[in-house]
């Protein structure tokens, strides 16, 4: 019995001594952090996505407290509402910033592609990119590995099994750009969107000549230039057999969508002009 008491006493003394040391060290090296940092972190999404240009949410909160104004500090995850809250915590004026969303510049779903590919490999776009592709397979488009879905910290991207393509839920997307960085094909476009204008995007990245592109995919941009001629606002240019839309000039009228012979232009969200256009 005595041995047990001895052990208890020794352990108890060691424990108390350690606690005392820890307490003293914690007192001595205590770092006083601005209380507002914790408050701001509460508002931030905590995804550490890096869209603000900082290492993570904590770094962003520290920066917010340090700098006198919120110039150049914007968290797309928190959004305009969150930034207003942060501004009120800090007693600063909230800056307006435009919302950004991600769009996949490819519509090469399983049924749209004319040449498919049977991948018996691991589910990874990087791996799929290095492997051999059959003749006529579109090497510009979505590889179907789902790296963007894995990279999305906001669950805005989901995998569409039927289409073998990622699907973006625009309500959840904050435009942080994690998916764009993960995509080895550079397919994901992060675009600023204006509240009242539906974003019109060319959903193709194929830079092959029209004839070749058309044999790869039914919805490929063939670079015919009809959209550029149709557009009354000069927003569309065609270079390298591929149309691009300038978001600054586009007003979202949807004329180009109607004109496109291969349905390579898509509008996301609602179209303001009342035309019978299918939206995604």
């Amino acid at each position: 019995m005595e041995e047990q008491y001895l052990a208890m006493i020794v352990l108890g003394v060691v424990g108390l001594a350690s606690a005392l040391v820890l307490y003293l060290v914690a007192k001595k090296f205590n770092v006083k952090e601005d209380a507002r940092i914790a408050e701001i972190e509460e508002i931030l999404p905590g995804a550490n996505c890096g869209a603000c240009g900082r290492k993570g949410c904590h770094d962003f909160a520290v920066e917010c407290c340090k700098s006198g104004s919120l110039d150049g500090l914007y968290c797309p995850g928190a959004g305009a509402e969150g930034m207003k809250q942060i501004a009120s915590v800090l007693g600063l004026a909230a800056k307006d910033a435009q919302t950004k969303k991600a769009f996949v510049r490819c519509n090469g779903t399983k049924c749209n592609r004319l040449v498919g590919r049977n991948l018996d490999t691991i589910k990874s776009c990087i791996s799929a990119k290095t492997l051999a592709m059959p003749a006529g397979y579109c090497t510009w488009g979505c590889l179907g590995g789902g790296d963007c879905v894995k990279a999305c910290p906001f669950d805005a991207m989901t995998w569409d099994e039927d289409a073998q393509m990622p699907k973006i839920t625009l309500e959840k997307c904050v435009g942080c750009g994690a998916c764009a960085e993960a995509c080895p094909q550079n397919l994901i476009l992060i675009r600023e969107i204006k509240t009242e204008i539906a974003p019109v995007v060319v959903t193709c990245s194929n830079r092959e000549k029209g004839g070749i592109a058309r044999k790869m995919c039914t919805v490929a941009c063939i670079g015919c230039g009809k959209c550029a001629r149709t557009c009354q606002h000069g927003a569309i240019t065609v270079a390298n057999n591929l149309a691009t839309i300038d978001p600054e000039k586009c007003i979202g009228c949807g004329d180009c969508i109607e004109g496109c012979p291969t349905k390579a232009i898509t509008a996301f969200g609602e179209i303001i002009k009342t035309k019978n256009i299918t939206t995604v």
Partner: peptide, 13 residues
């Protein structure tokens, strides 16, 4: 397990 396939991905990363 597809070890070498993933390691190839790892090299690219």
């Amino acid at each position: 397990r597809r070890l070498v396939d993933w390691i190839k991905v790892g090299k690219a990363i």
